[in-house]
């Protein structure tokens, strides 16, 4: 594990065995998260961006999902030890989950338990990971966290039930809960997708501020390219269970190499450029069914540069410049073609 990494995912393969068939949800996913940086994970539905984070948390649905291969290495900040989360006994994993690595989700409306007050739910997270803390201390800490995430009248709101709060407020509560244990990593899975634009801006601003203030690494999962452009240091672009491109944020947005990344960027109308009713180049075709993925490169049926080789053989990841890898035959040097 490299020194400034806190998390490394290596060759992760996850398969779902469902009634409708087998889905190879992750096929050789690899990424790393550095200390205090934000990694953006971008992709459309079924690309595996959320499955990856659930694998890190070891919260995959049982018994359908199975980790077939791979390692998730995590550096424990206190001991400096490297641990493979996939091999950790459940008992020990629980001390990582919600404590060293926390997670917030897309739906703030349903992610909080309706029958307990928000204070109870934050305190629960504090108490489970700090057994020596008293309830009074935990309550004080919960109020402090609510203040930190910008909830007005926190002393009063701590006794509110989730339904008494707006969507934006609930997402703040989720953040307060996730950060109440001072985690090393925060996984934010589409944290602003369900929110209004102005509230989205508030929440992203809050997450950035807290990252600076508290110091933590963030894995920001989203389908919205705009959200990662201004909030992430590096980006992993996923398509059908693979990371097709992985690079520092500027390279992804200014010099995308994979045709899928290029297409994705050309799919969104821009506030900063582009004329009225100009056609968007975008990507043709539909997302393939995860039950029945195409052979060869998974993107080839929609790729404008498709070659014969793409239809038969799947490219592996190639590092084309330091820290910038692409899975595409266009970027594999002829003689160096691997395996």
């Amino acid at each position: 594990m490299e020194k400034d990494n806190i998390l490394e995912i290596k060759n992760l393969h996850v398969t779902f065995y469902t009634e409708d068939g087998i889905v190879r949800a992750l096929q050789g996913v690899e990424y790393e998260v550095k200390h205090n940086e934000t990694l953006g994970v971008v992709g459309e539905s079924g690309c595996g961006k959320s499955v990856t984070s659930l694998t890190i948390m070891r919260l995959l649905p049982k018994p359908q999902a199975k980790v077939e291969e791979g390692q998730i290495l995590f550096r424990d900040k206190e001991t400096g030890q490297e641990i493979n989360l996939l091999e950790l006994p459940e008992e020990k994993m629980r001390h990582v989950r919600g404590n060293r690595i926390s997670m917030i989700f897309q739906e703030p409306m349903t992610a909080l338990n309706p029958v307990y007050t928000v204070g109870d739910q934050i305190m629960e997270a504090i108490l489970i990971h700090n057994p020596e803390t008293t309830r009074q201390e935990a309550r004080k800490k919960a109020i402090e966290m609510l203040k930190l995430v910008g909830i007005p009248a926190a002393e009063k709101r701590v006794d509110d039930y989730p339904h008494q709060m707006s969507g934006g407020m609930r997402q703040r509560v989720m953040i307060a809960m996730a950060l109440s244990t001072n985690p090393d990593i925060l996984i934010a899975d589409e944290p602003t997708t369900a929110l209004d634009v102005t509230i989205q801006a508030q929440i992203l601003d809050l997450i950035n501020r807290l990252q600076e203030q508290l110091g933590m690494s963030i894995i920001l999962i989203t389908h919205n390219l705009g959200v990662v452009a201004q909030n992430a240091d590096r980006i992993a672009v996923m398509y059908l269970g693979r990371i097709v491109e992985y690079a520092p944020v500027r390279e992804i947005f200014h010099d995308p190499k994979h045709p899928y990344t290029q297409g994705l960027l050309q799919s969104v109308p821009r506030l900063d450029r582009g004329g009225l009713k100009e056609p968007l180049p975008g990507i043709s075709g539909n997302l393939p069914s995860p039950y029945n993925p195409p052979p060869g490169c998974k993107f080839h049926p929609r790729c404008p540069y498709v070659m014969d080789r793409c239809r038969e053989e799947e490219p592996s990841a190639v590092e084309i410049s330091p820290g910038h890898t692409v899975r595409c035959w266009l970027h594999v040097k002829g003689e160096k073609s691997n395996e």
Binding site: V197, T198, Q200, A201, L204, N224, L225, G226, V227, A229, Q230, V249, R250, F253, H254, L265, V268, R270, L271, D272
Partner: peptide, 13 residues
């Protein structure tokens, strides 16, 4: 405010 809240897919915008 609405316009300024829209995330723009350009890290240098």
């Amino acid at each position: 405010a609405l316009l300024s809240a829209v995330p723009v897919p350009d890290p240098d915008y």
